[in-house]
Design a protein around this nucleic acid. Structure first.
Length: 347
DNA sequence: AAGCTATGCAACCGCCTCTAG
DNA sequence: ACTAGAGGCGGTTGCATAGCT
């Protein structure tokens, strides 16, 4: 940045603006070493700089000051910023006063470019430092007639290993689906594995409005038909860092002999079959089990009496045409979502 | 290799507060 | 008590560069 020749001039005052040159820096440093910096307008004049006092002050405090610590923030510094921000909000100068050698501008930039995104990915609202599930959409679920919610959630979970039995479970499940959608939305830009399959879910406009405006009430299931819960077009993204599943799991496939269908690709702990439209596999089965954080191996049926460790996906038709392909991936998607949510419940 | 996009960060802008006259 | 100017602060912009297609 410095040394660039893109500086501009303030037409009205004949004051130079833009990036500082090394010569200007040297003049400013020499002047401050000689006279100090009581009056910035005076500093600018004494240094022979065509800069306003404000610009000189900023250059000194944010860049030239000898006690500035440059380079990446340490873990401790990061933690301090997080704690102080939770306490103080965007009081950058106050936060900077607790971090020797760091400027408010540097901390502000670090927050906006790194920490905010990090918190968001962890499912934490960077403004309130509270879990992001505590929002209007979550609360609005309680206003949807229980029977409609139950029906809607189970229509999404069709063929899944985990049908909801009551509206309370349905609400909890809907919340988790929603959370999954948010996480998936935040990470679609990194997805390469599924790019050949139906487009990943982008949050629909109504949901997006709820997220960012916090003003549109979620009306009713009958008119909205659960746009935010429409996971049928979603390919869940298993590469999400925060979702990295710590448990060991195995996905095995049972494939008919004449099928070319069955090459696999490993994504974190998931082994998901690649779609190779060729001869028709009749079905394949996913077997899964879970390891808790305490190391116990359990199966879904230990948690939900009607669940199974094994789910079979049927493939429609003789050929994997577009419709069959979509149907197939819909099932896989739902299963992977369920798999993750179950993991969350267990752990 | 060239063009495009995303990211990081220095610097600016506008508003607020403080203080000297 | 009032006012003008300087300093301080948080938000925003725009440029340089890295990474990707």
């Amino acid at each position: 940045m410095e040394g660039s020749s893109t500086s501009s001039w303030d037409e009205t005052n004949g004051i130079k603006k833009g990036p500082w040159t090394p010569e200007e820096d040297q003049k400013l440093v020499n002047c401050i070493q000689k006279y100090g910096h009581g009056n910035w307008k005076e500093v600018s004049k004494l240094a022979g700089l065509n800069r306003c006092g404000k610009s000189c002050r900023l250059r000194w405090t944010n860049y030239l000051r000898p006690d500035i610590k440059r380079g990446t923030f340490s873990e401790e510094e990061e933690q301090t910023i997080l704690e102080l921000h939770a306490l103080l909000g965007n009081k950058w100068s106050t936060i900077a006063s607790r971090l020797p050698g760091r400027t408010d501008n540097e901390i502000k930039n670090f927050w906006n470019t790194h920490l905010k995104k990090k918190l968001f990915r962890r499912g934490i609202d960077p403004t309130t430092h509270m879990p992001r599930t505590d929002n209007l959409v979550m609360n609005s679920l309680a206003n949807i007639p229980p029977d409609q919610l139950l029906a809607a959630v189970n229509s999404i979970c069709i063929n899944s290993a985990l049908p909801c039995q009551d509206s309370t479970t349905a609400i909890e499940f809907a919340k988790m689906l929603y959370l999954g959608n948010i996480l998936q939305f935040l990470n679609t830009s990194n997805s390469t594995h599924f790019e050949q399959y139906p487009a990943p879910l982008i949050l629909d406009s109504q949901l997006e409005a709820l997220l960012y405006s916090n003003s549109t009430p979620y009306t009713s299931a009958s008119t909205s038909t659960f746009p935010n819960l429409n996971v049928s077009q979603t390919i869940f993204h298993p590469e999400v860092e925060e979702l990295s599943i710590k448990s060991n799991r195995t996905f095995t496939q049972q494939i008919s002999d004449n099928s070319e269908y069955g090459t696999s690709s490993l994504c974190n702990n998931y082994s998901i079959p690649e779609l190779v439209p060729a001869s028709s596999p009749e079905s394949f089965t996913v077997n899964t089990e879970y390891q808790t954080t305490k190391g116990n191996i359990i199966s879904p049926k230990d948690q939900f009496s009607n669940s199974s460790t094994s789910t079979t996906f049927d493939v429609l038709g003789d050929l994997m045409d577009d419709e069959a392909s979509k149907y197939f991936w819909k099932q896989v998607t739902e299963y992977v979502l369920l798999d993750y949510f179950l993991h969350v419940l267990i752990n």
